[in-house]
């Protein structure tokens, strides 16, 4: 994890698992960085839940449209980490 990275893939998969709950365990162990969230079983509501937790735990604001456009873990990590960098520069 570089100094400019707020969240990495293992952390994101941990959050995704937490939101899905124990009853609904999707396999996130493979190379899922570029797999579309819908194919992993995460619809827009499930993602909104994950994003809500990230915003709350890290005190950052994410652009709603950018989040909605992020179809893969890689794209979502980019949105989160670039927002975190922007906040750090502003601060």
């Amino acid at each position: 994890m570089s100094v400019h990275t707020l969240i990495d893939l293992p952390e994101l998969t941990r959050l995704l698992r937490e939101c899905a709950g124990e009853e609904e365990g999707v396999d996130l162990d493979g190379d899922v960085l570029d797999t579309v969230f819908m194919e992993l079983g995460y619809d827009s509501l499930a993602l909104l839940q994950v994003v809500g937790i990230i915003q709350r735990d890290h005190g950052i604001e994410l652009d709603e449209d950018a989040v909605a456009e992020a179809e893969t873990p890689r794209a979502l990590l980019d949105v989160v980490n670039s927002a975190a960098r922007a906040e750090r520069i502003a601060a």
Partner: peptide, 15 residues
């Protein structure tokens, strides 16, 4: 869309 597919993909019957 794939809203029902997303629900099914996380169902234990599929996973």
């Amino acid at each position: 869309g794939q809203s029902l597919s997303a629900l099914a993909r996380r169902h234990p019957g599929v996973t």
